[in-house]
Write a protein that binds this DNA or RNA. Structure first.
Lengths: 219, 219
DNA sequence: TTGTGTGAATCCCTTCACAGCG
DNA sequence: CGCTGTGAAGGGATTCACACAA
């Protein structure tokens, strides 16, 4: 039997993926309320984009709508979850049990959205051995072994910049395929490893720039 | 006297701003090490882009380099700080003193990069009155008054989605010009207010998508 | 000779407009 | 008639290539 997963030859830009996430979020809201179908118009309004954009985005993956009617809310939701790869559970590990790490660990949407944190690592001897929920914090030395043994696919890196590259490389060597990186450096990794950077400083600088440019700050 | 700030008529895309941040980061590293000049080549390598892109990005704001030589590290750094608007102190407020809020508050780069947190708000009566560093957590009811009185320009919103829109509107009404939004909703605000969204779920979904699409998941 | 600054060419994303299906 | 799906057009960002300055 052929693959049932909508996969695609054309390279899909990051911006499209972001919008797909938005559409999924909108569909989840709609499902909670009522409405069996949505139009691209309605999805566009909620996603802060245009109807044509919605249709084009979806068309990369197939024809999910009915002409004259719109899209079925639950049907499209299921397809989007398949497309985004969130119709399954992902095994993730958290590296860094500091402030950001602990905030992330407690983030309610992780578990509920199928991201199952199966390991936590930290370099601080004071933290090693502590129990967080179902997992016990391990030494960073155990990364290779545990990532491999637990079949961790995604790693959340919440450590200082100085440690990030090394820990990332070791995670990847042990089988991790994606990294959500909070450290303020650009990781150098094989190109088949996917990295998403979250840089608070950069976000703030983008705000500073926008406000400065828009003439709020004279002289 | 005319403005000394490099401001520009052409609309600068978000992606360019991101790269400018990267260049600044690279320049700071270079300044710590040695090297009085850098080439666009070198900046490109560190910023994960191309030399032509570096030159094009900078050319939007002026001619900062010397032909045959490159860019002066400290000089370009100063210009970039001006361009990004980080050659000054920004008064910010943190709304939401939960896990994410407290992690952000303690984030060392905030203070060191000129973001001065002058107020913290929370809705939880247990938290109101607590002292964090130099500030005392206030009730969310005080947002209008304090944002105005303290001349807060930037707000970091780290509250549940259900409260975000209201608190954002009130901050803006009191004078805030930019919002760094951690709540998983699209805020609807006047278009002269700048919003940057940080959505952990979306970042994870982007990773899931990339891994799924790159054929890691057969069948 | 080296490396910037920049028009021109290219590529890619978004928008348009409409054919076609329900 | 309503709304999707999609080729074509349009617009913006990136890349190319080279004149030119040090």
């Amino acid at each position: 039997m052929r693959s049932i997963r909508p996969s695609v030859s054309r390279r899909i830009p990051e911006s499209t993926v972001r919008r797909l996430s938005h559409y999924l979020r909108s569909l989840e809201e709609l499902a909670r309320e009522e409405g069996l179908t949505v139009s691209s118009e309605e999805l566009a309004k909620r996603g802060q984009t245009t109807a044509a954009q919605v249709r084009k985005d979806l068309s990369h993956f197939g024809s999910f709508g009915k002409r004259g009617l719109g899209y079925q809310v639950d049907g499209l939701g299921r397809r989007l979850r398949q497309i985004l790869g969130v119709d399954r559970t992902w095994r993730i590990a958290l590296i860094g049990a500091g402030r950001i790490g602990s905030a992330l660990f407690a983030y309610p949407d992780f578990q509920s959205r199928g991201y199952d944190c199966v390991a936590v690592f930290d370099a601080d001897p004071e933290k090693i051995g502590l129990r967080w929920g179902d997992v016990i914090i391990q030494s960073s030395d155990a990364i290779e072994e545990t990532v491999r043994a637990e079949a961790v696919e995604l790693v959340i890196l919440a450590v200082p910049a100085s440690a990030a590259q090394d820990l990332a490389e070791r995670s990847v060597a042990a089988g991790a395929k994606g990294i959500l990186n909070f450290a303020p450096i650009r990781l150098r990794l094989p190109k088949d490893v996917h990295v998403e950077d979250v840089s608070l400083v950069m976000e703030l600088e983008a705000l500073s720039f926008a406000i400065t440019q828009s003439g709020g700050v004279p002289e």
